[in-house]
Computed example of a mutant assay.
Amino acid sequence: MTESASPAHRPGADPVSVWRGLAEGSVLLDGFHALKHAVRFGASVPVAVTVDRAAALALADELAPDVRETLDALLTEVSDKVYASLVPRPHPTAVAALAVRPSREAGLRALARTSRDAPVVVLDQPRNLGNAGAVIRLAAGFGAAGVVTTGTLDPWHPTVVRGGAGLHFATAVERLTVGELPPGPVFALDPEGEDIRGLKLPDDALLAFGSERSGLSAELRARADHLVALPMRPQVSSYNLATSVAMTLYHWSATGGAPATA
């Protein structure tokens, strides 16, 4: 679903007042691409602003004609000063919007499905917000069923959403404890595991990745059904988290799984 018009476009509505009234409980969409993806995947967007409507709509004509009409109805032009007052870090495209966060209940229902046709990515106590956003972007691109984080990192933090380019709305994204993980066999990435090149990852797998610094937690390791290792040259200590997720999802897709096509 997409919004045909935001409150900012209704007669008498002030976009700045609408923004400030909604900001605390909403998801910040930082930049044109985040707004484009959120709208494309059905986010409810009550307000969107830009310092240059013509430029933003030209980008839509070039990169996202499928949502151009919706963006035309949503975007309100504001001054540079107003735009800078609404966002913590101005984006090069000078576009920003607020979206309604999907309900936790809906996310949990999506993750709990037992007939999944794509894995769930589990980030076990991640630390880096940008890495978490990159993983969500990867998961959406491969058609993963969702991304779950354990620990203290909020997967809906504005920096994570920025790194995910608005693709949180293309998959289920939730924070859970290890005991709350959805059903399915857990394939946990670990240097001591079995070489992934000899395995076929099932579609209903939970693909678990440890933190950038300390690897898998003891609790997640105890929950794992299989330990899996990525090929790595001796004396190289580790891969970046997002790189590890990309390699693992590619292996899944190349050995029978496939990204969603619709």
Rank of each mutant, 00 (worst) to 15 (best):
R113A: 14
R137E: 06
H157N: 13
E174C: 09
L167K: 04
D154I: 02
V160G: 05
L129Y: 10
V95Y: 03
V122K: 06
Q125A: 14
A84V: 12
P102G: 01
V78R: 13
L129A: 12
V121S: 04
V148A: 09
A96D: 01
V95Q: 06
R89W: 08
V121C: 04
T150C: 13
V121A: 05
R162D: 08
S115W: 09
T149D: 05
L153M: 13
V95P: 11
Y83T: 10
T159P: 00
V87N: 07
R127Y: 07
A110R: 15
P88K: 11
A139L: 01
R137D: 05
V121N: 06
E77T: 15
E105P: 08
P158Y: 01
G141Q: 03
G141A: 14
G143A: 04
W156F: 09
F169W: 08
P88V: 04
A96K: 04
L108E: 12
V148T: 06
R116S: 12
W156E: 13
V160Q: 01
R109P: 11
G133T: 10
A97K: 10
V121G: 03
R109F: 12
P155V: 06
N131R: 08
A96V: 13
S115R: 14
A96T: 14
L111M: 04
G166E: 03
P119H: 07
A94Y: 11
D80C: 10
L86Y: 02
H168S: 00
A140K: 02
I136P: 06
A94N: 14
A165V: 14
N128C: 12
V95R: 04
A110Q: 15
T152F: 13
H157K: 00
G130M: 06
S85Y: 00
V82A: 14
V78M: 04
G141M: 01
T171P: 10
R109L: 15
R109V: 15
H157M: 04
A99E: 01
D154N: 15
G164Q: 08
H168C: 02
A97G: 07
G130F: 03
L153P: 12
Q125P: 01
D154M: 07
A144G: 05
L153T: 00
R104P: 08
A139N: 00
V173H: 02
A118Q: 13
A106D: 15
A134K: 04
G141N: 13
V135F: 00
S103F: 02
P155T: 11
S115H: 14
A132F: 01
Q125K: 08
L98Q: 05
P158V: 04
V121M: 04
P119I: 07
V78S: 07
L86S: 11
G164I: 07
V173Y: 03
V135P: 07
P158S: 11
V161R: 12
P102R: 10
V122P: 07
E174F: 02
V161D: 06
L123C: 07
G166V: 13
L167M: 14
R116V: 12
E77R: 14
V82M: 04
V95A: 08
V147C: 03
E174I: 10
T171S: 09
E174Y: 08
A139T: 01
P119T: 10
Q125H: 14
A144K: 02
T159S: 13
A112M: 11
G133W: 01
T114G: 13
R109D: 15
V95I: 11
F142I: 05
